[in-house]
Amino acid sequence: MPSFRLLAPVLFALALCGTPPAASAQSFSDGQRGDIETIVKNYLLAHPEVLEEAMAELSKRQAAAETEKHEASIATNAETIFNSPRGVMLGNKDGDVTFVEFFDYNCGYCKRAMADMLDLMKSDPKLKVVLKEFPVLSQGSVEAAQVAVAVRMQDPGGKKYLDFHQKLLGGRGPADKARAMAAAKEAGLDTGRIEKDLASPEVRATIAENFKLAEEMGMNGTPSYVIGKQVVIGAIGLDGLKEKIGFARCGKATC
Rank of each mutant, 00 (worst) to 15 (best):
F4Y: 09
F4L: 09
F4T: 14
A8V: 05
F12T: 15
L14T: 01
P20I: 04
A23R: 09
S24D: 14
A25L: 13
S27W: 08
D30H: 04
G31Q: 07
G34D: 13
D35N: 07
E37H: 07
T38Y: 14
N42P: 00
L45D: 09
V50H: 06
L51F: 11
L51H: 06
E53H: 11
M55E: 15
E57W: 08
L58M: 11
L58R: 10
S59D: 15
A63W: 05
E66Q: 08
H70M: 03
S73Q: 09
A78M: 09
A78Q: 06
T80H: 11
I81W: 15
F82M: 09
V97H: 02
F102E: 13
F103L: 08
F103V: 05
D104T: 12
Y105C: 04
D116Y: 11
S123D: 14
P125G: 05
K126S: 13
K128S: 14
L131H: 02
P135F: 05
L137E: 10
S138F: 03
A145G: 11
V147Y: 00
A148M: 03
M153L: 09
Q154K: 09
Q154G: 11
D155T: 07
D155H: 04
G157S: 06
G171Y: 00
R172N: 11
M181T: 15
A184W: 03
A187D: 02
L189P: 05
G192K: 13
R193Q: 15
E195C: 03
E202I: 02
E209K: 06
F211K: 12
A214D: 13
E215D: 14
G221Q: 10
Y225V: 00
V226C: 12
K229H: 10
K229L: 08
K229D: 12
A235L: 14
G237H: 05
L238K: 01
D239R: 11
K242P: 06
C250M: 06
C255E: 04
